Computed example of a mutant assay.
Amino acid sequence: MSRVIYTPEMLEFIAAQYKLKGLPEVTAAFNKKFGSDKTVQQIRATLKNHKITCGRKTGELNKGVLRTFTDKQAEFIKQKYTELSLVELTAAFNSEFGTDKTIKQIRSFTRNHNVKSGRTGRFDKGQQSWNSGMKGWCAGGRSAETRFKKGQALNTMPLGSERLCSKDGYVMIKVAMPNKWRMKHVVEWEKHNGPIPKGYRIWFKDNVRTNWAIENLMLITRAQGAVINKMGMGTVPAELKTAAVTMADISMKRRKLSTSKQEQAA
């Protein structure tokens, strides 16, 4: 197999980027700059073959730096966590910054950086409840019609109810009783386009998993998605999504041709 040729401009770009960024970021920047589909492994090999070093001590790049959150995002979490639950905070964070963080990631940040909500979830000694001294109080209106009846499960939610999945941050919608839920974006896609074919998945154009609007959804194959993530382009902006899919197709075609040639030569 012939060796990949890098121009002096490419090598200079890689060397400059590597002094400031980690390998995944260098790879993504290189692919965007030169319209290529290099993987992290290929860029790492190039660094080694051309003896390009970052000039940093181990861990120096991330020393005092938030690895996956900017200072502005960190401050947002610290302020909002005193007002919002983790589910609400995750949704607000993704809406504010156009990200697709999961509840698990937000929870990890609060724990790793000792961010406290200030809430205990219980009444403190001597604290009065909101309905203290209001025995027999009734909310009025039609509240009596919506109260739980004797023998009715307290955790039963009606059809069409929505919640945020704590595992991956997707909006879930209840589609059948007693407890069948589906991803809202999948339901919305199928409403307009029919069932998602086997081997395909939905990609959010703005990278926000809670934005299930049909115009924000696009269909790609799972193979394309895997290659796109490998190239470090999983969160490119909406205007580059189609280009990322094209680059993934080219990469897979190139790999298939390379494998075919190797098999013929064997």
Rank of each mutant, 00 (worst) to 15 (best):
M1G: 14
M10D: 00
A15V: 01
A16P: 00
Y18G: 00
L20P: 00
L20N: 13
L23W: 06
L23I: 15
P24W: 04
E25Y: 05
N31D: 10
N31F: 04
K33S: 06
F34C: 04
G35N: 06
T39W: 02
Q41S: 15
I43K: 09
L47W: 10
K51R: 15
T53S: 15
R56T: 10
K57V: 03
T58R: 13
T58G: 11
E60G: 09
V65S: 03
T70D: 12
D71T: 07
F76K: 01
K78C: 09
Q79C: 03
E83T: 14
L84M: 14
L86C: 02
L86N: 09
E88L: 10
E88T: 08
E88P: 04
T90F: 06
F93V: 05
N94T: 09
E96K: 08
E96T: 09
G98V: 08
T99D: 09
K101I: 00
T102R: 04
S108M: 06
F109G: 00
F109D: 03
T110A: 00
H113F: 15
V115D: 03
R119D: 08
R119Q: 14
T120V: 14
G121I: 12
G126C: 08
Q127N: 07
Q127D: 14
W130M: 13
N131L: 11
G133D: 13
W137F: 14
C138W: 11
G140T: 11
G141N: 15
G141S: 15
K149M: 02
K150L: 02
K150C: 03
Q152L: 04
L154H: 05
T156L: 11
T156E: 13
G160T: 11
G160I: 07
E162K: 15
C165K: 04
S166M: 03
D168F: 00
G169D: 05
G169L: 01
W181E: 08
W181Q: 02
K184S: 06
H185C: 03
E190H: 02
K198L: 05
G199S: 05
Y200H: 13
Y200L: 01
I202R: 05
D206E: 11
V208R: 13
T210D: 04
W212L: 00
I214N: 13
E215K: 06
E215C: 05
E215V: 00
N216W: 09
N216F: 07
L217Q: 14
L217W: 12
M218A: 13
T221P: 07
A223K: 15
G225L: 07
G225K: 02
V227E: 10
N229V: 10
M233T: 01
M233G: 01
M233R: 07
T235A: 09
V236S: 01
E239N: 11
E239K: 05
A243C: 03
V245T: 04
V245E: 02
M247I: 03
A248W: 04
R254Q: 02
R254A: 12
L257H: 03
S260T: 01
S260C: 01
K261G: 01
E263Q: 09
Q264I: 07
